[in-house]
């Protein structure tokens, strides 16, 4: 464990806490971008060069653009309170605390349990694009093809959900009726 890894690990955890604790969704999104870049740094430190590059391209490049775009599109008012934390949130926090202890214990003691070694082969794994490609297109070719089907299903689902329904919503609900009510209010 080098000093670089420890410093970047602490930074990663801090920015991850920023995702959860920020009041405004945009601040959460920026913290998440920082976290994704820091995880990419960890991938690069571990020798997973291809994964690090794809992490920056796909996560920080594509997915976060979508998230920020949706935040912009919805124009969320940050002043709207999220509501008082009820007993459900307290129970969730308690549950997560227990999970943190269990996961941390398993992570620290699990290495000897599974007899994992950190020898020369740990750093000799071929994480370059050539190595990943050779493995992906020989041993995992069926999963790769199924992935294209998954992406297609995702596209079709997103388009289907994005179609504006012609059917009117029930009175008093939905964006249109809300806007109509606001217009009536303004006219009065």
């Amino acid at each position: 464990m080098t000093a670089v890894m420890i410093v970047f690990g602490i930074l990663t955890l801090a920015s991850a806490c920023g995702v959860v604790c920020s009041r405004q969704p945009v601040h959460s999104a920026l913290s998440l971008v920082a976290t994704l870049f820091l995880v990419a740094v960890h991938f690069a430190l571990l020798g997973a060069h291809f994964v690090a590059a794809v992490q920056v391209l796909v996560y920080a490049g594509a997915i976060m653009v979508l998230v920020v775009f949706v935040i912009m599109l919805l124009g969320l008012d940050a002043n709207v309170p999220e509501g008082v934390a009820g007993w459900g949130s307290s129970f969730g926090a308690l549950l997560t605390g227990v999970a943190a202890v269990v996961f941390g214990y398993v992570a620290i003691s699990g290495r000897s349990f599974f007899a994992l070694k950190e020898g020369a082969e740990f750093w000799a794994v071929d994480g370059t694009t050539a190595g990943i490609g050779a493995n992906l297109y020989s041993n995992h070719i069926f999963a790769f093809e199924v992935t294209s089907l998954l992406i297609l299903a995702g596209i079709v689902g997103a388009v289907f959900l994005g179609i504006e329904k012609k059917r009117p919503l029930k009175a008093g609900r939905g964006l249109k009726s809300m806007q109509a009510a606001q217009k009536e209010e303004a006219l009065r």
Binding site: T12, C17, A100, L116, E118
Partner: peptide, 18 residues
């Protein structure tokens, strides 16, 4: 390195679940 990164991964997962 292995224990450290497994611990980091566990904590990141817990923060996300929280």
């Amino acid at each position: 390195v292995i224990s450290g990164y497994l611990f980091l991964s566990a904590m990141l997962f817990t923060i996300g679940a929280l």
